[in-house]
Every structure is written in structure tokens, then in C-alpha cells.
Design a protein around this nucleic acid. Structure first.
Lengths: 186, 186
DNA sequence: GCAATTTCGCTACTTGAGGTATCGATACTG
DNA sequence: CAGTATCGATACCTCAAGTAGCGAAATTGC
């Protein structure tokens, strides 16, 4: 098993830090099998840990995949995002992330579960979307409604292409997406 | 059971025409429980038929839901769609359809399954999207690539809003969507 | 070193849903 | 009435989400 966290004063065996291994295994299994067929058993096996260990950290499969996505979309390279070229760079970054093996499938899957699972929807909206929403709002200096709309357009378009074709959007079309959104914000 | 189809020369008990009842039951069950929890058993029960009868007509749950969607999105009122106002009217029609109870959930669900199910993706792309694609291409007089992009934007945006908020997009935002797409095609 | 404590892996289990098989009953054709 | 194809009902198989229980680690504090 991977590292084990440092002492924290409390007694008992410390939790081993398996997050990185689990996320990597999630990514690989998602890519190989997709959301529906990627079982928690297989993810656990790929990560080299027991299924029960996963359920001790994330209550449901949806929560696990959401955590994976939060991790995957964490920390966009903001240093590259200055001035007028910030938005295009950010859109291209999101497009590239969704194009990464496993990420698009995970996103689409957890997304669907969210439509009729208020708890998951809350998680997805609060933990995954909200931080980026705040960043964007500050970056663009636009009202929240406008920023929400832009996020729907960008992520929705990329995911729809992914679902319909099975492959990420071509660069050429991402260029069009950038141009379109740019005009919306003018 | 509903009507039974007219004689077709072949012997044996004719198939009863249950499609309308099944689609209505699918809509209601999707609305009530969402894609994941809407079981084929329940849909059959709601339609007043046996589960086996459903599986005699549609090979999988995904195929059933796709058929439901094809039926739901069939025959947009093209007589209303003439001249410059054709596209806005069509977008609003799609938005209203996705906003109908059960339709958005069904769409998002089958959509996710499609990401890693080539067969379902083929079905969805060929039977659901393609006809509308052809109509749009003729209506807009634009190259296929452009029309595909527009469809990704419109449907993707509407579905993303649905997934994130659990509710259909407000009319105000649909207006923005119309305006944005209009500019893309200019 | 040793007790107390907490997590680990493992195995077994429960529950539920997709999908299949079978069979008697039913509704047709000729 | 004979033949045929579908119907509903029931039972079943398989697989995956999630839970329970237990002995084996890995710690802290004495």
C-alpha cells in the first residue's frame, strides 16, 4: 500500500493516503470501460486496495467519481491566464481536460446521475463548478448569470460532442467555440 | 391491452400496438424516478403490459429510451419555421421539448450510456440526430460541420443546465442562446 | 515491550436491476 | 378446426452497488 499519513496525535492505525492511486485507477478504468461498466470492484483492484477501503472514504460511486473530477479539474494554470487571452486559454484547458482519457466518460456519467440525484447535484455544483465559477467571475468581471451561461455553453458543448461521437472535439471546432464565447462577452 | 394491429397476411396472433402506451409510461417513469432508477419493470407496469413484451420490441433499456426520444422529437412543426425566424423557433422548440417532464432526464441518461456504448451511440446519432441535422442543413444552407457545431452548442447547453440545476433553462437564458447562435451563423 | 485503538484486506452477504427462458393462454390465418 | 405467433406471468441468471464482520496490520501512549 502507498504512504501512510504522518502522526496526528490520535491513536490507532492511520489512514493510508490512497487518493492519488484511486484517482489514477479511476481514470484508467473509466477510459477502459466507461461509467456504467467501471465497477467499484475493478477500480479498487486497479488501485491495489480493497473495495471496502474506497467505501470508507467515499459514500457512493457517484461521490467517488465526483472527487476524481474535482481533482482532475483542480488548479488550472492561472499564471498563463492574463489579460484578453485568459478566456481562450481557459476554454482550451477545459477542452483538453475533457479530452483526457476517462475524464469525459466520468463527467458525462456523473452528470447523468446528477439529473435525478439532488445530493449528487449539490456536490457537483458546489464542489466542482462553484470554485471555477468564482474564478471566472473575477477574471471576466461579468455578472454571475452571464458566467453561468458561459459555463453551460462551453462544458455542455464539449460533452455533447463527446457523447455523440465518442471522441473529443477537434481543435478546429474548439477554435469556433472560443470565438463564439468571446463574442458573447463583448 | 391496447389495439391490435390489422391483419398483415401472416398467421399467428398479431402484435398489439403498445408503442404509444410504452412511450407515455416511459415519460412518466423517467419524470418520477430519473434514468437510473426508472426500471424496465416499472415502465412495463405503468404501461399495463409485461416486461417481456417490451424486450420483444426493444433489445435493451438504452434502445427503448432512444426510441422514446426519437418519438418525442419527431415532427417539429416545420410550418412555423420559415425565413429568418426559423432557427429561433426551432431552438425554442427543442428547449421546450427538453424541458418537458422526463425528456431531459431520458436524454441525459441515454446520452451517458452512449459515451462508452458504440452501438447505442450509433443509434442515437443515426436515428435521433441525423434527420434533424439534414433538416437544419437545408434550412440554414450551411456546411455540415457548422450545423453539427450548432447542434452541439444548443443541445449541450440545454442539457448541461438541466444536469447542474435539475431544472430546465429559463426563458431569459434561452433568449441568450438564440442570440448567440444567430451570431454564429451570420 | 505491551495494551488500546483504528484502519486495513478479505470474504460473505443483501438488494436490486437488466435481461433470458419457459409455458399456458390468446388471437389471429386459412 | 389446425397451425402459428404473440401475449402475460413467473421464475430465473448474472452482475454490480453497498454492507457486515473479522482477523491482521499499524499506530499512540505507557
Amino acid at each position: 500500500m502507498a504512504r501512510t499519513s504522518t502522526a496526528s496525535g490520535s491513536p490507532g492505525r492511520p489512514r493510508s493516503s490512497v487518493d492519488a492511486a484511486v484517482f489514477a485507477a479511476t481514470r484508467a478504468t473509466m477510459d477502459e470501460l466507461g461509467y456504467a461498466r467501471a465497477t467499484v470492484d475493478r477500480i479498487a483492484a486497479a488501485a491495489g486496495i480493497a473495495k471496502t477501503t474506497i467505501y470508507r472514504r467515499w459514500p457512493t460511486k457517484g461521490a467517488l467519481i465526483t472527487a476524481f473530477l474535482i481533482d482532475a479539474f483542480d488548479a488550472p494554470p492561472m499564471e498563463d491566464f492574463e489579460g484578453r487571452e485568459a478566456l481562450p486559454a481557459l476554454i482550451r484547458w477545459v477542452a483538453a481536460k475533457i479530452a483526457e482519457p476517462g475524464v469525459g466518460a466520468a463527467f458525462a456519467g456523473v452528470f447523468t446521475d446528477a439529473v435525478n440525484d439532488p445530493g449528487l447535484r449539490e456536490l457537483l455544483s458546489t464542489r466542482l463548478q462553484e470554485p471555477h465559477l468564482l474564478t471566472l467571475q473575477e477574471l471576466l468581471g461579468r455578472p454571475r448569470r452571464r458566467v453561468l451561461f458561459v459555463v453551460d455553453v462551453v462544458v455542455g458543448t464539449l460533452l455533447h460532442r463527446m457523447g455523440m461521437t465518442g471522441e473529443p472535439m477537434a481543435e478546429e471546432d474548439v477554435d469556433d467555440l472560443v470565438a463564439m464565447v468571446r463574442r458573447v462577452l463583448d
